[in-house]
Amino acid sequence: MASAATVLFNGIAYGVLLFIMSVGLSVTMGMMNFVNLAQASLSMLGGYVVIAFTQSYGVPFLLSLPIAFVLVGLFTIVIERLVFRYFYGTDDLTQVLLTIGLVFMSIAVATYFWGPGYRGVDVPAWLTGQTDVFGLTLERYRIFLVIVGGLLSIVLIFGLERTRFGAMVRACVDNSRVANGCGLNTDLIFAITFAVGGGLAGLGGALSANLLGIDPNFPLRYLVYVLIIVSVGGMGTIGGTLIAGLALGIADVGGKYYFPEIGSFVIYAITALVMLWSPRGLLGRHQ
């Protein structure tokens, strides 16, 4: 019983990790119809920012997380102004080719600046080790992840799906000419949304760095998981991404625990089934 509960908790924590890494892409892809595979590169950048600030400048880990969010968000604006904005409204293939090209460039650039090796993150002592909660021995970092993930979901669901700003973004996406005509500054709104999406990716990388390690091939390795979560959850829904992350996290951890021989296939089997049943994902927005 205790094992089952621990496995469930670990599944939830893994699900939250998947959610945090994917939600940025869900925002840009769903709200703006822009397929940005380079999102995974922004996650890597977030990881390197945390490493740089905690190790070189002695900034505390918790403070380095918002720094990663802000810096990666600002960096995203630069890229958006220089590159992405010329590709709004182009077809998916063009965007995929463009952004996967950026992924390869990011790998080369990261290798140039930080070398091809793995870098670890030093988290404070109170985030390492285990704590007893209701008779279960749980990892502290995972508890921390679940709390951060919970807060993040609340902020995002209310901020992007229930506010005027979210409505403005959707208006710009659905018909940017009319939105422009109604007095919305579409350029600005797109840039801000992009920055938020990129910042979230950076935060995801920053939070996962402790568990996964950061190296230049990080984007390619985790891109698949990010795409799976976004497709299963449905693009553009924070709630859908959260549900998909949790479902796949729990299924993956549970599957590997109870059926280790086939456990690694569970996540792919569920993805295939969901895609067959509902190609737009669990809570995908209709176009």
Partner: peptide, 20 residues
Amino acid sequence: NLRIPLSNPEFSSYMQRIKD
């Protein structure tokens, strides 16, 4: 015996098996 898939970011279920 545990066989870990080549793409595997999550080890907690295997750790639980070892604990058991």
